[in-house]
C-alpha cells in the first residue's frame, strides 16, 4: 500500500453537512443497519468501506431517501442535512434528491442523447431560463464530469453508445447538472477498467472543491487514494470512523485492522 503516504494531507475542520444519529434500517424483519452515527463534512470526500453485505450501500441510500422506493425498507433515527431532518414528514423526497445527487454502481445513462441525459435534471427542476441557459448548464456539467472534450462533437448521439468509463462520467455530469450540495457515489468504479477508474477518481478529487462527496467502495486503495474521511462498516455496525490516514495506518478497532490487512472481509 504505497498510497498510504499520500493520505497525509491537510484536513481542515469544516462544517458538518450531514449528521446521522442512531440510524437503524430494517428490511422486513432483518435489522440491516444498527445504531450508526456519522458526521459528513462539507467539501470533503468521505469513503464507506467494509465487506459485502455490511450495509454501507444501504446507509448511503438512506442519505437521499432512495430506500423509499423499496417497500419493505424502514428507517429510524435522525439524519440531518444542514440541521434539518430529511425524514421529516414535511420534507419532499423529490426536492431532497435534487440537493443530494447520486451516482450508481453501474453506469445507467437514459436511452436518450448525451445532451438530453445531462439536461434531464435541469429540465425537471426548471433550472434553465432558456435554451442558451440550458446549453450553458450542459456544457458546464460535462466539463465538470471531465467528459466535455470527448463528447462535444456528438452531443446528440445516444448516451448508451459511449464506453463504460465515459458512461459513468456522463452519469456524474448528469448528477452534477442539478447543482446538488452532496454527491453520493455507490461503488462508481466497480464496473470500470483501471484507466476509466483513474479518470473517475481524479474527477472525484476535483468535485471536492464544490461538493461534499460520499463514496462507497470495495477497493481500500481507492478509499485511501480519494478520501479524507473513512468509515468502516461491518455486519451493519459502524466500527470505526475517522481521518483516512489514521484508519489505514493506525486503526483503533482490531476489526478494522483485520479488514484493511486482508484477514477478514
Amino acid at each position: 500500500m504505497n498510497d498510504m503516504t499520500r493520505v497525509e494531507r491537510a484536513v481542515d475542520s469544516k462544517d458538518i453537512k450531514i449528521n446521522a444519529k442512531k440510524v437503524q434500517v430494517y428490511y422486513g424483519d432483518t435489522h440491516a443497519i444498527k445504531d450508526v452515527d456519522v458526521a459528513i463534512e462539507d467539501k470533503t470526500v468521505t469513503a464507506f468501506i467494509g465487506p459485502s453485505g455490511c450495509g454501507k450501500s444501504t446507509f448511503l441510500r438512506c442519505l437521499n431517501r432512495m430506500n423509499d422506493t423499496i417497500d419493505i425498507c424502514r428507517v429510524e433515527g435522525d439524519i440531518l442535512l444542514d440541521g434539518e431532518d430529511i425524514y421529516d414528514k414535511r420534507v419532499d423526497p423529490v426536492q431532497l434528491r435534487a440537493k443530494v445527487g447520486m451516482v450508481f454502481q453501474k453506469p445507467n445513462p437514459f436511452p436518450k442523447s448525451i445532451y438530453d441525459n445531462v439536461a434531464y435534471g435541469p429540465r425537471i427542476h426548471g433550472l434553465a431560463k432558456n435554451k442558451a441557459d440550458l446549453d450553458g448548464i450542459v456544457e458546464k456539467s460535462l466539463r465538470r464530469g471531465a467528459i466535455w472534450d470527448e463528447v462535444k462533437d456528438r452531443l446528440y448521439a445516444p448516451g448508451t453508445g459511449l464506453s463504460g468509463g465515459q458512461q459513468q462520467r456522463l452519469c456524474i455530469a448528469r448528477a452534477v447538472a442539478t447543482e446538488p450540495e452532496v454527491l453520493l457515489m455507490d461503488e462508481p468504479c466497480s464496473a470500470l477498467d483501471p484507466i476509466a477508474t483513474a479518470q473517475v477518481e481524479e474527477l472525484i478529487d476535483e468535485l471536492r472543491a464544490n461538493y461534499s462527496v460520499v463514496i462507497v467502495t470495495h477497493s481500500m486503495q481507492q478509499a485511501a487514494r480519494v478520501s479524507q474521511k473513512t468509515a468502516f462498516f461491518h455486519l451493519g455496525n459502524l466500527v470505526e470512523f475517522g481521518e483516512t490516514g489514521q484508519i489505514f495506518t493506525n486503526p483503533v478497532d482490531p476489526r478494522t485492522e483485520s479488514y484493511i490487512t486482508g484477514r477478514i472481509g
Binding site: V94, M102, V103, K106, N108, I124, T178
Partner: peptide
C-alpha cells in the same frame, strides 16, 4: 437502474415514467 437514476436526480414518479 433507469428508474433509480431518474429518482436520484430528483424526478417524481410520473416524470420518471414519462421521460
Amino acid at each position: 437502474a433507469m428508474r433509480d437514476g431518474s429518482y436520484g436526480l430528483g424526478a417524481t414518479q410520473s416524470e420518471t415514467i414519462r421521460q
